[in-house]
């Protein structure tokens, strides 16, 4: 028997890691077996690849690559023009450049907002669920207040008060999105902490912090992963809506800004300046929703196979 050999200390770690990796890979394999999820993953890989390779795909604008370059000699050029494959805007901005650097902006926006909101939501929700009692009451009433306002309106209000800038859009979205995670994680924690393995850990005499980190959190986190994936799309959608109504700086290489600035030309037949960036927003949101749904099917405890 292979197992009979006494592995070294490091051997145990490596083996445990391998088992965990295999489990992770099997979940990943299961997710990808669904064709719509696979399509979503493909789109995401393409867009993230585009974002990462932006400086290679286009010449970065100086001094700020996130600002649209201006070619005053080529205003409102249609798609197919040499050097301007997808045409130019009324200010002579290259639409393709806007799409490529806009994917960077979107990736930055969604990663920052989602990681910040997950962190806040998980901390607040865990405290409420794990400690219970007064702490729970106070935190959840705050959450209720936030939840009672529609997220777009709320983000709009915050961004409007703070003034138009892309940084403020990030802030506004973060202020809106954390609430959902607090709700989700609280419900999970309350459910999970009733399991006998939590009591077994208490009987062993492990610390509350250890019990939370080893027993409660890992078993509560999956719905958060699903929601976070969906929100990677939603954040960009709402972010684009906010920039569309003018809450980002004009001239920013951002899809919502491009749609907004191009829409004036639609009636004059200059459809390209709005349509291509709009399509990108749609694809981005669609792709993350497809993957989120696929993840939910695989990870949802109700469908989890023992």
């Amino acid at each position: 028997m292979l197992d009979a050999a006494r592995p070294r200390v490091g051997g145990h770690r490596v083996r445990a890691a391998a088992v965990r990796l295999r489990r992770f890979a099997s979940v990943g394999g299961e997710v990808l077996r669904n064709p719509t999820t696979l399509a979503g993953v493909t789109i995401i890989v393409a867009m993230v690849g585009m974002a990462l390779l932006a400086p290679v795909l286009t010449e970065p604008n100086v001094p700020d690559p996130y600002q649209m370059p201006r070619d005053w000699g080529a205003l409102n050029e249609p798609p197919g023009t040499p050097d301007h494959l997808l045409g130019t805007t009324q200010h002579g901005g290259d639409v393709l450049y806007g799409i490529i650097w806009g994917s960077r902006t979107s990736l930055r926006l969604s990663l920052i907002v989602v990681s910040v909101t997950v962190a806040i939501g998980v901390i607040v929700g865990s405290l409420a669920g794990f400690l219970g009692g007064r702490v729970d009451e106070v935190l959840m009433r705050i959450v209720d207040v936030f939840l009672s306002i529609p997220e777009l309106i709320f983000a709009l209000a915050i961004a409007a008060v703070l003034g138009p800038s892309f940084g403020n859009i990030i802030l506004a979205l973060a202020a809106v999105f954390w609430v959902k995670y607090a709700r989700i994680i609280r419900g999970q924690v309350i459910h999970v902490k009733q399991n006998d393995y939590v009591d077994a850990a208490r009987v062993i005499g492990d610390s509350r912090l250890n019990i939370f980190v080893k027993d409660v959190l890992p078993n509560s986190i999956t719905p958060v992963a699903v929601q976070a994936t969906l929100d990677m799309g939603n954040v960009v959608l709402i972010g684009a809506a906010l920039s569309f109504i003018g809450l980002a700086e004009a001239g920013l290489a951002e899809w919502g800004v491009l749609v907004s600035q191009g829409q004036a030309g639609i009636s004059a037949g200059r459809w390209w300046a709005s349509t291509f960036p709009g399509l990108m927003v749609f694809l981005w949101a669609l792709a993350f929703n497809l993957v989120g749904d696929g993840l939910r099917d695989v990870l949802d405890p109700r469908t989890e196979r023992r």
């Binding site: 145990h12 399991n195 006998d196 009987v203 005499g205 078993n219």
Partner: peptide, 23 residues
Amino acid sequence: RRNCQVVFQDAFSSLNPRQLVKD
């Protein structure tokens, strides 16, 4: 704590599903 231990009824809920047996 060391001298008083427990075995629960529900063998499914009494083991953390995310831990390996060795842990």
